[in-house]
Simulated scan of single mutants.
Amino acid sequence: MARKRYISTEISVDSRINTLAREYGDFAVLLYTWLIPHAGDDGALTGNPEEIAMIVIPGFRHHSVSDITEALSGMHELKLIFWDKENERIYFDSDTFYKYQPYVSLSKRRSSNPWEQKTAEEETKENKTAVIENYKREMAENGDNKRLLTENPASPSPSPSPSPSPTKEQRREEHGSAGSAPLCPFEKIKEIWNEVMGPRGRPEAGILTAKRKKLLKAIWNTPGWSDVGVWREFFEYVAQSDFLMARFPGLTFDWVIRQENWVKIREGNYHDGG
């Protein structure tokens, strides 16, 4: 276990860190900085969320393993770390890590980032897949040519059979099963948030990132939530909370649509008597 690690004031203006704070909350940023002194000289440490809870933040009992998991996912997505879930290891970006830990001897340093190695492996796998697919296609074409040569060239070509009508299963795959929720109107939900919260002085939502769409879609597909009217009522309900509106500076679009916060709001934890 490392005894010391350096940290720079540059972390305060790092665009990835600020994005982490906006999209995943202050806890994610705090956890990131606390992970640094627990990393070994190879810039790696355990990637097991339960072990991180016991080793890195033992006093934060109010944060669950799911909170840690979401924070790590955000760090991984922003390339602040590489989270190898299969082997339960976390690796810091080697360039950034050794920039601020110059005392680590060269013999103990990691020479490359796991995600760079992963990219090379994936590229090799894609190339192999392409070769196999080309081979299959050539074999199929050769088989068709042989079949045509063995047929009687003088015999009239059979008239093409009409294409069968799509089955019910195929139609369901193409258009969705009957009774399923309509597609999530990401832009409309964002507009409702801005209409409700903008005049009240809260930050308006801008770009609909992949992370935001994933969170919105998960809620939208919850029974009873595939209606923009329900979302407007929900945002108005949030605006009725004295705690969230007057005493909680972290109230943002991203914070509200995070699954655990959405559940707590619905349960009335931030309203009078909650």
Rank of each mutant, 00 (worst) to 15 (best):
E126S: 10
D84A: 09
F60G: 05
D42L: 03
D95Q: 08
L80R: 02
L106G: 08
D95M: 06
S94L: 03
E77P: 01
P102G: 10
R89C: 05
N48D: 15
I57K: 11
A130W: 03
E70S: 03
P114Y: 01
E88W: 00
F92D: 02
M54S: 14
G40F: 08
S94C: 07
T96S: 08
E50C: 06
N87A: 10
Y100I: 06
T46F: 00
W83N: 07
Y91K: 06
Y100E: 10
G74S: 02
K125P: 01
Y91M: 11
E122L: 15
V131D: 09
G59S: 12
E126C: 04
K99V: 03
F82P: 07
N134H: 07
Q101T: 05
S107R: 14
K118F: 14
Y103V: 01
N48R: 11
I90H: 02
S66F: 01
R89M: 11
T119N: 13
D95S: 08
S73W: 01
A71H: 00
E51Y: 03
V56H: 00
D84K: 05
E70L: 05
N48T: 09
S94F: 02
F97C: 07
E86C: 01
N87R: 09
T69S: 07
W115L: 15
H76E: 04
T119L: 13
K108D: 15
S94I: 05
R89N: 06
S105P: 13
K128M: 06
K99H: 10
F92W: 02
